[in-house]
């Protein structure tokens, strides 16, 4: 289908290009670098956070789908101002904690260090949610993780490469053998 081919080409170009940005950011004037109220530095940090949660493997990771800008858009559009503030404070805290512990920048830091820090935050959010009262605020890292997973697996790379996706399956089979390691279908 033309639509699919066109998008595949767009993404192929994205993959081959030196700078990986989502289409909306690409359309913004270079230099101003304000996307959804986030600075270029914040977007870069979000890209690195996303790519630490879903890294490059045999298929591209979250950075390749423009996760930084996706996270910025979702935070700006789908969260109340107070929640946005908590999320942005949390994002800044990730960079600050990293700097304190490893003495450098989270962006561009060794993957093992970034992963170790985010795994620690993931344990924190799980403990936070295990004891969360019904009206309690969710942990910012849980939201970042969920949004990263959403943005990645519903992207074209995520749906068609990390998973399997057919726009037009054409038939229904109610019982098909599955072998561990086979990719899931995007539904």
């Amino acid at each position: 289908m033309d639509l699919t081919r066109r998008d595949a080409l767009v993404h192929l170009a994205t993959l081959l290009g030196a700078t990986v940005v989502g289409p909306r950011l690409a359309a913004a004037p270079i230099g101003s670098m304000q996307a959804h109220g986030f600075s270029a530095e914040e977007i870069a940090l979000l890209d690195e956070i996303g790519d630490t949660i879903i890294p490059d493997t045999d298929v591209p990771g979250a950075r390749a789908v423009g996760i930084g800008e996706f996270l910025a858009m979702m935070i700006a559009d789908c969260y109340e101002p107070a929640e946005q503030q908590r999320l942005r404070a949390g994002i800044a805290d990730i960079a600050a904690r990293y700097k304190q512990r490893y003495g450098g920048s989270f962006v561009g830091g060794p993957s093992a260090d970034r992963t170790a820090l985010l795994n620690e935050l993931d344990r924190e959010q799980r403990e936070h949610h295990a004891a969360l009262p019904p009206d309690g605020d969710p942990h910012y890292f849980r939201i970042l993780k969920e949004l990263t997973i959403l943005g990645y697996f519903s992207s074209e790379i995520g749906a068609t490469q990390a998973l399997r996706y057919l726009e037009v399956p054409g038939r229904y089979e109610p019982d098909v053998p599955y072998t561990r390691g086979d990719r899931a279908w995007f539904n």
Partner: peptide
């Protein structure tokens, strides 16, 4: 149906193990 990529797999944290798990149903 089989749960998809939006399911919670708490024990896997972040990174490659999470990604590979969520690529399977």
């Amino acid at each position: 149906s089989r749960l998809g990529w939006a399911r919670e797999v708490a024990e896997l944290g972040v990174g490659e193990p999470l990604k590979e798990e969520l690529r399977e149903p």
